[in-house]
Computed example of a mutant assay.
Amino acid sequence: MRRIAIIGCGGSGKTTVGRQLAALIGAPVTHLDAVYYDAGWNPLAAEEFAALQEKLVARPQWVIDGNYASTLHIRLAHADTVIFIDIPPLVCLWGILQRRLRYHGGQHAAHGVYDRIHWGFIRYVLGYRRRMRPEIRALIEEHAPRARVITLTSRRAARRFLAGLPEAT
């Protein structure tokens, strides 16, 4: 595992898994939310965001967490490992609530946390498995046919996965 794409619903634990995994394997980690939005919640232009990801995946080792289905093909084409965190929506909402309380809302780039909760986001989380999961799986199949795909279906499974990895030397 040298080039790892982490995908999952908001609140699924992508940032936490990414940070811990990067530390274990000694790779740089990029939280796409932290580079996509500026301090005023303005997103990067689509072309700039794609170009940034092209630079990130050109590195020999990386962990990148984030969905962004419009540019997912860039990460998938270069990943040797794809981690899909596919946990129930209510667990994701609970994770979002815990994150909100822990960080008191707002943006925390140092932690890769960009917390902007609104009804559209809540609907997105609740419908993620029904709407996004099929699209994500199709993109993985199309753009990462040789990558190892690891699906984690609970927080416990994520902890077990991380605990089973050797530390970087």
Rank of each mutant, 00 (worst) to 15 (best):
N67T: 10
R102S: 11
G106Y: 01
I122L: 15
I87E: 07
W119R: 12
M132A: 09
W62R: 01
A138M: 09
I140H: 07
H108L: 07
H104Q: 12
R133P: 04
I74Q: 02
Y128L: 14
N67K: 03
L76H: 05
G106P: 01
R130D: 04
A69S: 15
H104C: 15
G105H: 03
G112Y: 07
R137H: 11
A58P: 07
L56M: 14
I83N: 00
G120L: 03
H143L: 01
E141N: 12
Y103P: 06
T81C: 11
F84E: 02
H78D: 10
I150T: 03
F121I: 11
Y103E: 02
F84D: 05
V113E: 04
H108W: 05
L101Y: 00
Y68R: 15
L97A: 11
A110Y: 02
H143S: 00
Y68F: 13
W94G: 14
T71V: 15
H108G: 09
G105F: 11
L93K: 07
A58Y: 00
L56I: 15
R148K: 09
P145W: 05
F84Y: 04
L76Q: 08
M132V: 05
E135K: 04
L93A: 10
G127L: 15
I64V: 06
A77R: 12
H111Y: 06
D65G: 02
Q107G: 14
L90F: 14
Y68N: 12
P60F: 00
L76M: 10
R146W: 07
H73N: 15
R100N: 10
Y128Q: 10
Y103A: 11
L101W: 02
R102V: 09
D65M: 03
F84W: 00
